[in-house]
């Protein structure tokens, strides 16, 4: 009987249709690899965004076989840099036209190429204005300008693979290339507590983001405070750093208070939702008991 029923259903045209659909879906799910590229090309493209995604003329040339080998690693260094993460590209520092290969190195388009050793602070200072000012007035800057031998920006930060600054950039290995580490160590001690505070705030902000909060105001405040504080460091004057530390600490405390307030708010939200959950769960239990009593 069951077999007859089954046969009847199999022979029914509509079930063959449904069966073919199931087979098609199954085949589709086991389809070959390499689909992602096709999918992205088909569904994830926008006419004007592809221009941005496309490699710039600088990168295309620097990664090609014709390029001298010592310049070929530059794009890779840049790709993992803090600059790349913040959309700072080749032409932002070196000028030129990254969209037009024929004009990429044209001086008419502002191409400066690789600057002289002593011109590097000026190049970086186009964006890092405050830091340039403090650096020029510092011992490091004076040594470079007056004698042409002092450290410039890339001596400590590197060139194309510039990374996000961390206090550990001040270390015996790096500083003792030019002078005894002792002076730098005193500077590091003066910076230490403030830097640790900044690090803690950064972690808290990341935590807030994970909890669904968009702490942009706190992030902007931190960015400004951090930038001012690190600008100050380039004076390499311990006294100045110590004098201003209280000011920066109070600013950071204010940001910390805001973050603490947000965490308290999240805690309140949780308690409030839990309270409502208990109310409705309780009502559900009571109504269920009433239903049972009626049955």
């Amino acid at each position: 009987m069951v077999l007859t029923n089954l046969l009847g259903e199999v022979l029914s045209v509509r079930y063959i249709y449904i069966l073919s659909l199931v087979i098609l879906v199954s085949v589709a799910t086991t389809a070959s690899a390499g689909y992602r590229e096709i999918f992205e090309k088909e569904f994830l493209s926008k006419p004007w965004s592809t221009d941005i995604v496309a490699e710039s003329a600088c990168i295309e040339c620097h990664t090609s076989e014709v390029m001298d080998e010592k310049f070929r690693s530059i794009p890779q260094d840049w790709r993992v840099s803090w600059h790349a993460q913040n959309n700072v590209s080749c032409h932002d520092c070196h000028g030129g036209d990254s969209e037009d290969a024929s004009m990429a190195m044209s001086h008419k388009r502002g191409f400066t190429g690789s600057p002289n050793y002593t011109d590097i602070p000026e190049m970086c200072g186009k964006c890092h204005i405050g830091i340039l000012k403090n650096y020029v007035e510092s011992g490091h800057g004076k040594a470079l300008i007056e004698e042409g031998t002092g450290p410039n920006c890339i001596t400590c930060h590197g060139s194309h693979n510039v990374q996000k600054v961390h206090i550990d950039i001040i270390n015996a290995q790096l500083c003792s290339k030019c002078h005894p580490y002792e002076r730098a160590k005193i500077m590091k001690q003066a910076l230490f507590l403030t830097e640790k505070k900044i690090e803690k705030i950064e972690n808290d902000l990341a935590d807030l983001r994970k909890q669904g909060v968009y702490p942009d105001r706190e992030e902007k405040n931190l960015f400004n405070t951090q930038a001012q504080f690190r600008t100050l460091f380039h004076t390499i004057d311990v006294t100045v750093v110590k004098d201003k530390t209280n000011f920066f600490t109070s600013q950071l405390n204010s940001i910390e208070d805001d973050i603490k307030g947000t965490f308290e708010e999240l805690s309140f939200r949780k308690k409030f939702s839990t309270f409502l959950m208990l109310i409705f769960a309780g009502t559900w239990a009571i109504v269920t008991l009433i239903i049972r009593s009626k049955d």
Partner: peptide, 10 residues
């Protein structure tokens, strides 16, 4: 609904 808001808000 409130359970998710309390314990799995994200």
């Amino acid at each position: 609904t409130f359970f998710i808001m309390s314990f799995m808000p994200t």
